[in-house]
């Protein structure tokens, strides 16, 4: 056991590996997008401005989750809970804004699904939609850790779950920023 001291915690290591898998998934999709873009029939687009605001929201949530983690390490539990809750709320707001964005996009005549849809627009829905699913996953994990802290009789000061969530949250945040820049440059 003493040997393991300097090593990274196995769960954290697993998380990093899992993130590599997620990166491959989005790499697959964005490469498909790039290939498709170079073929005839591609229709270019600009994203509705609400996506800029949702990007800001998710960036702020990265800050709040970091504050929560720091509070947890310093055993400032009420501060930790507050900022954890804010993070979750920002996550929900982000998802709502994305969905509104999809509706605006579709309403502006850029059909993403159904008759007359163009793969260019459909890609936005598929890729950004899949990203939402990952945010949802993060929210569920957040909720589980959050309510476990209340449910226990004895206090649980194990920092690992909180660190795992923070890392994951930063990841999906950066992932969205990447996707946003990607869509904006390669429309």
């Amino acid at each position: 056991m003493t040997m393991q001291r300097k090593k990274i915690h196995p769960y954290k290591f697993s998380l990093w590996l899992g993130l590599a898998g997620i990166i491959m998934m989005f790499a697959g999709l964005t490469s498909a997008y790039i290939v498709k873009r170079s073929q005839p029939g591609w229709q270019s687009f600009t994203l509705p401005t609400i996506f800029i605001y949702s990007t800001l929201v998710i960036l702020v949530s990265s800050v709040t989750v970091q504050v929560a983690l720091k509070a947890f390490r310093e055993r400032l539990m009420s501060k930790y809970r507050l900022f954890f809750a804010i993070t979750a709320a920002l996550g929900l707001i982000f998802i709502s804004m994305q969905i509104i964005g999809f509706y605006q996009f579709q309403a502006s005549g850029k059909k993403m699904i159904g008759l007359g849809s163009n793969p260019a627009y459909s890609f936005v829905l598929a890729i950004a939609g899949l990203h939402i699913v990952h945010i949802l996953g993060g929210l569920i994990a957040l909720a589980i850790v959050f309510f476990k802290a209340f449910g226990r009789k004895t206090r649980n000061y194990d920092v690992v779950p909180v660190e795992l969530i923070a890392t994951y949250w930063h990841f999906v945040d950066i992932l969205w920023v990447y996707l946003f820049v990607f869509f904006s440059l390669l429309h």
Partner: peptide, 20 residues
């Protein structure tokens, strides 16, 4: 995961009327 993304696009084509 790459296979997975291929399947997602296939599901879109099957059920949401997209044309990937």
């Amino acid at each position: 995961p790459v296979l997975f993304s291929g399947f997602i696009l296939l599901l879109f084509d099957r059920h949401l009327g997209t044309s990937f």
